[in-house]
Computed example of a mutant assay.
Amino acid sequence: MQRKISNPSLLLFIILVGFPQISETIYTPSLPDIAQHLGASNSMIQLTLSMYFLGFAFGVFCWGRLSDSIGRRPAMLWGILVYAIGCFGCYLSGSVEWLLACRFIQAFGASTGSVVTQTILRESFDGTRRHAMFAQISAALAFTPAIGPLIGGWVDQSLGFRAVFLTLVAMSVAIWLYTWTSLPETRVESTVKISILAVTRRLLTDRRVWGFGFLIGATNGILFSYYAEAPFIFIEFFHMSPGVFGFFGILVALSSIWGTMLSRRMLIQFQAEQIIMSGSIISMVGAISLIVLAVIGIKATLTDLVLMVICIFILLLGISMTIPNCLSLALAHYGDVLGTAGAIFGLGYYVIVSLITSGMSLLHNGTLVSMPLYFLGLTIAMVLVSRLLAQSKVR
């Protein structure tokens, strides 16, 4: 039976889930600039994205677990405070090692916006209503990865890359105040005393949880590996300014909007597992298209730029159809231990995201072929796993 929460607004949900994504992408237009100022290689600077997800992985475990013991609201407020400290540390960083450490702290705090908000949603809605809520929020959040580069590109171009991190400090203060005044407590008291070993055992023996965990990790890994490579492709190869590159991200985000809206409409006639498989296939087609384009030979012309945008559009369209349905289904049978289950599950899939983005940084070689080849391998695996999930649902 659906239990209504104490009216936290949809806007608050969107902000709390969205600010970690903005934090991840806001400084991507500055990556070449940061590498130059800190005297680091492009691959080393790309590792700051992987470090973010590693901190995020440990954060979702800690904050999800903590939300079961002290409550959803306190866990959220403390996490945002830690996030603000990490942002200020990034602003002060004078070396790539310092930046890596502060990115870990920043992500550790930001992760509360993901895991605790998802827990509130899962314990407050069920069935088709839960799928629709995740799809609706995902549609709104499709612009957050684009808002980040847009803001970051113009701030970097006008004030330098350090001002980007100072912008995040100001944003964290505003989010903390909004959360303090608007987020009620939604924890169910009966879920406080939970055995973490028992929950872990349940998750590890659940094949569907493994499948959804891989799909969420792979889709997010592809998405943020793209954001790691995109500045070097569009700024260095196509000679875009950071400001123009930031605006360009909005066009790409339209694929995410369309994908989540399409997913929501398809839920009327199709099961979520079928939509997940369709999205995986579409992403694979996008990866193949990018490979074909790279093999033919890409030049810094408007025509090739448009063709690359179309291929990326197809790739991200499939991803945006897959993610919300996986998030909605993954812990559908863990309503009695949502906070702890979400913490363990989040730790697992964000480790996958970190490993995938690390793989992209290791494969970075200045060519336009490595990224689509990497994405093709990942999307083939996604199609196979989504097929197994669909078959298990039928049985």
Rank of each mutant, 00 (worst) to 15 (best):
Q2R: 15
R3W: 02
K4N: 12
S6K: 15
P8V: 11
L10V: 14
I15D: 05
F19M: 11
P20T: 07
P20D: 00
E24M: 11
E24T: 05
E24G: 06
T25C: 08
T25S: 13
Y27P: 06
T28V: 12
P32Q: 09
D33P: 04
D33R: 13
L38W: 05
L38Q: 07
G39F: 11
L47Q: 10
T48P: 05
Y52R: 09
L54G: 05
G59W: 00
G59H: 00
F61L: 15
G64T: 05
G64Q: 04
S69P: 00
G71E: 08
A75H: 04
A75C: 12
M76T: 13
M76Y: 07
L77K: 04
I80H: 03
L81C: 12
V82G: 00
G89S: 10
L92E: 14
E97L: 14
A101Q: 06
A107G: 12
T117D: 03
I120A: 03
E123S: 10
E123V: 06
F125S: 03
T128V: 14
S138I: 08
A139G: 14
A139L: 15
A142I: 02
F143Q: 03
P145A: 01
A146D: 07
P149W: 07
L150W: 10
G153D: 03
V155Y: 02
G160V: 08
F161Y: 15
R162G: 06
A163P: 05
T167R: 01
A174M: 14
W176S: 11
L177N: 11
Y178S: 09
W180F: 14
T181A: 13
T181E: 11
S182D: 04
S190R: 14
V192L: 13
S195N: 14
L197H: 12
V199K: 05
V199Y: 06
R201L: 12
L204C: 13
R208H: 10
R208Y: 04
W210I: 08
W210T: 03
G213Y: 03
F214P: 01
L215F: 08
I216L: 12
N220M: 10
I222N: 07
Y226G: 07
I235E: 08
M240V: 03
P242F: 03
F245G: 01
I250G: 07
A253G: 12
S255G: 14
S256Y: 10
W258F: 15
G259C: 08
L262N: 09
R264C: 00
M266G: 01
Q269Y: 13
Q274C: 05
Q274E: 15
S289N: 08
L293T: 09
I296P: 01
I298E: 03
L302T: 15
V306M: 14
L307Q: 09
L307H: 00
I312P: 02
F313C: 08
L315P: 06
I319T: 01
S320G: 12
M321S: 05
S328F: 09
S328V: 11
L331A: 06
L338Q: 12
L338C: 11
T340N: 08
A341R: 05
Y349T: 01
V353N: 01
T357R: 02
S358I: 01
S361H: 02
S361W: 06
N365M: 03
S370F: 12
M371R: 02
Y374D: 01
A381T: 11
A381E: 06
M382Y: 06
S386K: 00
S386Q: 01
A390Y: 10
A390F: 10
A390P: 01
R395C: 10
R395W: 00
